[in-house]
């Protein structure tokens, strides 16, 4: 399996008054193409920080972040925007749909940056939303909104799908549906999926689990036989 992502001694620091605080402290790990990775850790551990760096949405204070061999930390703002537009799909905890656009329009929005995107209707059908296509976010349930958000992330056919607590705002059943959808993307469409969560039960569906604690990588474990998302209980 080809290595897609490599973190090398990545540091993210914040200055709080006089003191320097490390949100990420010399983190190193690798992720292969097509993997389903779960990043686990308690609240405040630095998971979101890690994911944001991976998505080119934040700048590291030190170290190297390699994507397909290229170092993101050397990228300019424009190059990062380009990287995000081409390679990364993001799914947020609170969906972050544009409230004034319908589900269809939220997905079609991606056409504004990349001509070569999936047909929005098709993307929505893939997440099982053909019925709700023309509803506004406020007219949809949390699960439906999150699925729209996944459809939006998938529309431009990215190599990397990043999800920050995608089930955080959902109940068990809808959360499971979303997980299944993500797993399906990884298995069938060969996407690399990186999902952040504080729920250790999710570790079972991953092919690799990265545990984060106080900004450090506590452990990286491979999972030879990941469970089906539908079998997970929490």
């Amino acid at each position: 399996m080809k290595t897609l992502i490599e973190f090398k001694e990545v540091v993210k620091e914040y200055t709080r008054g006089e003191k320097t605080f490390y949100a990420l402290n010399h983190a190193s790990f690798q992720i292969g193409e097509g993997e389903m990775v779960v990043i686990l850790g308690p609240s405040g551990a630095g998971k979101s920080t890690l994911l944001n760096l991976l998505g080119g949405m934040d700048n590291a204070s030190g170290g190297q972040i390699l994507f397909d061999g290229a170092d993101l930390t050397t990228y300019s703002d424009d190059a990062l925007t380009d990287y995000r537009a081409r390679n990364v799909g993001v799914v947020f905890q609170f969906y972050n749909l544009i409230p004034t656009l319908t589900a269809y329009e939220n997905v079609a929005l991606m056409k504004d940056i990349e001509e070569d995107t999936l047909d929005p209707a098709e993307a929505l059908r893939a997440v099982g939303l053909e019925q709700q296509m023309h509803q506004f976010p406020s007219q949809m349930s949390g699960g439906e909104q999150q699925r729209t958000s996944i459809a939006r992330a998938l529309a431009k056919n990215p190599r990397l799908l990043l999800c920050d607590e995608p089930t955080g705002a959902l109940d068990t059943d809808t959360g499971r549906e979303v997980l299944a959808l993500l797993q399906q993307m990884s298995r069938e469409k060969k996407k690399t999926v990186v999902m952040v969560t504080h729920n250790s039960m999710f570790a079972e569906i991953a092919t690799k689990v990265i545990r984060v604690k106080n900004g450090r990588i506590a452990s990286v474990t491979e999972n030879k036989e990941p469970k089906d998302a539908n079998e997970v209980n929490w």
Partner: peptide, 16 residues
């Protein structure tokens, strides 16, 4: 603010 952040995260350029 959040919408602007989302658009940025989705890959919309600053100029856009």
């Amino acid at each position: 603010r959040i919408q602007i952040g989302t658009l940025k995260a989705l890959g919309f350029s600053r100029g856009r």
